[in-house]
Amino acid sequence: MSGSNVNKVFYADNYHPIQAGSIDGTDILPHDNAVYRALLCSSAGLYDPHGDPKVFGDPYCTLFVGRLSHLTTEDTLRRAMSKYGQVKDLRLVRHIVTGSSRGYAFVEYETEKEMRRAYKDAHHSMIDDCEIIVDYNRQRLMSGWIPRRLGGGLGGKKESGQLRFGGRERPFRAPLRPIPYDDLKRLGITPPPEGRYMSRFQERL
């Protein structure tokens, strides 16, 4: 791999649990039990991204907002996100038993243009002294998506042992070793797009 690609990155077009668990998108075996669980879930078709009765609105106008303070309320979040456009609807995800915030939410804007503005400008902004992240609604727009509760997802903390790559916060790095194309093809993982890398500072939606 040439030195010019050392700091280059790329993003996943589709979700594959093994690929998401790989820093360069080239792994062919699950490296932890969560990835294996997500792979089984994906292979058996056990997760329906459109089957959640709480899902609402137009996915092309909806943002995921994460790393929220557990003290942040719907009103506070609405005020903060209204700076980027007209908020049509909002769902702060809460624990089904305790009712406490789970630290993430979904915000739907009136238009896709407003959503894109929030995607660009709200990322790493502060709400209630917490630095938030925003991303598009991968659950409904990313083919093959498996959520973190089933071993999938993207991002995560190193301490958790469940780092996931391919998204906005943790994009894949340029391949660290020769890519086993035959194995990737057998597993249905799209080979990394050599020659189409982007810098860490480029956005893609």
Score class of each variant (00 low, 15 high):
A80S: 07
Y84Q: 05
T98G: 05
L90V: 00
D89W: 00
V65R: 02
T111G: 07
E110I: 07
E74L: 11
F56S: 04
V87S: 05
L63S: 04
P59T: 09
F56N: 10
L71D: 13
L77T: 11
K113S: 10
F64M: 14
L92S: 07
F64S: 10
G57V: 01
T73I: 15
F56H: 06
T73Y: 00
T98M: 06
Y109R: 08
G103P: 13
Y109W: 04
Y109L: 09
F106Q: 03
T76C: 15
A105M: 09
T62K: 15
C61F: 00
L63W: 07
R91G: 03
P59R: 11
E110N: 09
L71R: 12
L90P: 03
E112D: 03
R79G: 06
Y60P: 01
C61R: 09
R94G: 04
G99V: 00
L63I: 06
C61W: 03
V65M: 12
T62L: 09
S100Q: 05
G99F: 00
R94D: 09
D58P: 02
T62Q: 15
L71K: 14
F106V: 02
G99E: 06
V93C: 13
H95E: 03
Y109T: 01
R91D: 13
H70F: 09
E74G: 09
R91N: 13
F106D: 02
V65Q: 01
C61T: 12
E114P: 01
M81D: 06
M81F: 01
Y60I: 08
R91C: 11
